[in-house]
């Protein structure tokens, strides 16, 4: 047999205890939508596995104008919440009904590209992650948490327990482009957030998915936007900057060349959509 022990702790304390007793060889899963396919095909052959479905980290609650999301909150719950529309949209465009009933927000942060699109929206919202272990609790910016392809800043004795979305200013747009409309891996995902003082952009986030080892911020594009009035020239320049600074890859979905071209297109479209949306609201 491959798996010899499967633990299903009923509380965070139990989970932390199991993790410190069994060490880094303990595979931790939540919804199972990433790990189970690998186990089913014999690509991953873990001996000991811990499932987090029953640890009670599946609540979403408003917090200081933002949102506190338990790590094992399902994508279905994220879709149903009304506090942060961009997160609902990101969940809606992820996988399928059955998978959203299983997959979790925390798990999505460990999902390698071209999956893991919820992280793109969270990145544009300056989300933080909470990590807990036998040595205590710490928080980290999401942008610091994802460090490489399937690697994170998680210490061996730590669990990701929650995601915090602060109260942030500005308008948001989320665009996911895949090969089909539903249940599709991304060619590119773009999440933008722009705060303005009158016409002038005071703060901007341009987050990209499926064009790097993990969700990325296009910081040069953000710098182009700050101080601009989102005029067509600035939008073009930001799209060009994002296309230049992304790190696309080839896979069965798209070539790196195509992904880069689509970054240029969809960053522009996301910003144009945002401008149009604001104009409509202002009317």
């Amino acid at each position: 047999m491959t798996v010899v022990e499967y633990f299903l702790p009923r509380s965070l304390a139990q989970a932390v205890d199991l993790l410190s007793r069994h060490g880094p060889d303990l595979l931790v899963i939540a919804g199972g939508t990433v790990a189970m396919p690998l186990i089913n095909d014999g690509i991953s052959l873990p001996r000991q596995v811990m499932g987090l479905r029953f640890v009670g980290l599946d609540e979403i609650e408003p917090s200081d104008g933002g949102l506190r999301i338990g790590a094992t909150t399902t994508l279905t719950s994220l879709l149903r919440q009304r506090h942060v529309p961009m997160l609902a949209e990101a969940a809606r465009r992820t996988a399928s009904w059955s998978i959203r009933n299983m997959g979790t927000v925390g798990g999505n942060l460990f999902t390698p590209p071209p999956g893991g699109d919820v992280a793109v929206a969270l990145l544009a919202l300056d989300a933080e992650v909470t990590l807990e272990g036998s040595r205590g609790r710490r928080t980290l910016a999401l942008s610091e948490f994802q460090t490489g392809f399937m690697t994170t800043a998680l210490e061996p004795q730590e669990l990701l327990t929650g995601i915090g979305v602060p109260a942030v200013a500005g308008e948001t747009t989320y665009v996911k482009f895949g090969r089909k409309e539903a249940n599709t891996p991304s060619v590119v995902t773009v999440a933008v957030r722009v705060a303005r003082d009158g016409e002038v952009v005071t703060d901007a986030r341009v987050a990209l998915g499926a064009v790097g080892p993990h969700a990325l911020r296009a910081r040069k594009a953000e710098a182009v936007l700050v101080g601009s009035s989102l005029e067509p020239g600035a939008i073009d320049e930001a799209a060009e900057a994002a296309a230049e600074e992304c790190e696309p890859f080839d896979d069965g979905i798209a070539s790196a060349w195509y992904r880069r071209a689509m970054v240029r297109l969809f960053v522009r479209r996301a910003l144009e959509e945002l401008v149009q949306h604001v104009a409509l609201e202002g009317r």
């Binding site: 499967y6 939508t33 499932g51 009904w97 059955s98």
Partner: peptide, 24 residues
């Protein structure tokens, strides 16, 4: 989890039974 052929309902909600440890 990619084809839906194994869809079952758990407490009335659809899930992919190929990704669900039975202990869950």
């Amino acid at each position: 989890g990619g084809c839906g052929s194994c869809t079952v309902l758990v407490d009335g909600e659809p899930m992919m039974s190929c990704l669900l440890p039975v202990e869950d």
